[in-house]
């Protein structure tokens, strides 16, 4: 079992190593001048140095705060609204057209307005992250909760469960696989959007670091935040995967 898991991890690492190898090859064989594309070794060395730098850690912290706050608000709203819409037809009638209008909207287009409303600090970025992560979570919660097998509900009702408790005792737990799938998509989107928001206008955070380095042609420093956010994304996704595995331990493999 554990050797099989090890092989899966190794298999997953291979394509990443392949990308790094191409990157290294581009530098080694002179296809890209080192001033424009620094070799990966240099970038990772710089990253290691930066991890001892308090200023850099503050930037990571700022990004993480925005990412988590935005993502968690999106989870609460998305799951709440999604479940409510699946159970109460009146709520569905109100939510459905709103979702249809708002979901395809490029949320980043609202960002200038959000800055005017909430300022340059955390609030505007958290709001943007929430807006972008909300819809995948809401939609998958709604579909998961709508597709709950009728006979699970009947079994619970016959066992004496009051109708108002069915939402929490049957529908929400039965929809958990879909809810967590939505959360996983929402988390990836959160990573992208928080970085994007910081690139557009910010005074700190990883996205801000990247833009600052790019403006002064410090190419090594430009790649460090990029690698950092993808490593953070990898770790967060791993955490969520573990949580999912624990919460869904009774469900058939999905």
């Amino acid at each position: 079992m554990s050797t099989r898991r090890l092989t899966t991890v190794l298999m997953g690492a291979l394509p990443i190593l392949f990308v790094l190898a191409i990157w290294q090859a581009l530098c080694s064989f002179g296809y890209a001048p080192p001033s424009l594309l620094p070799p990966p070794g240099k970038v990772f060395l710089r990253l290691a140095q930066q991890l001892g730098n308090v200023g850099f850690l503050d930037d990571i912290l700022a990004t993480l705060i925005r990412l988590f706050a935005g993502f968690l608000i999106a989870v609460v709203l998305g799951v709440g609204i999604g479940l409510a819409a699946a159970v109460v037809p009146a709520i569905n009638a109100v939510v459905r057209p709103l979702v249809q209008v708002l979901a395809p909207l490029p949320k980043v287009a609202l960002y200038p307005a959000l800055i005017i409303l909430f300022g340059f600090d955390h609030a505007s970025k958290i709001t943007l992250v929430t807006l972008d992560a909300l819809f995948p979570i809401l939609l998958s919660t709604y579909y998961g909760a709508s597709m709950v097998e009728q006979k699970l509900v009947w079994s619970a009702l016959a066992a004496g469960t009051p109708r108002w408790q069915i939402l929490f005792k049957v529908i929400a737990p039965a929809a958990l696989p879909s809810i967590l799938t939505g959360c996983r998509i929402g988390l990836v989107i959160s990573c992208i959007v928080v970085f994007l928001a910081e690139m557009i206008s910010s005074t700190d955070g990883l996205g801000h670091l990247l833009v600052g380095a790019a403006r002064t042609f410090q190419t090594v420093d430009m790649f460090v935040p990029l690698i950092t956010i993808s490593l953070l994304g990898l770790m967060l996704n791993g955490l969520l995967y573990g949580l999912r595995k624990y919460l869904l331990r009774g469900f058939p493999e999905v």
Binding site: E149, K151, L152, S155, P173
Partner: peptide, 21 residues
């Protein structure tokens, strides 16, 4: 008028709660 614990169903599809042991 509705379901109640005086009438217990058993379905072909089992309909067990997958999140419970």
């Amino acid at each position: 008028t509705g379901p109640g614990p005086d009438r217990g169903p058993v379905f072909q599809e089992f309909a067990l709660f997958p999140w419970k042991t």
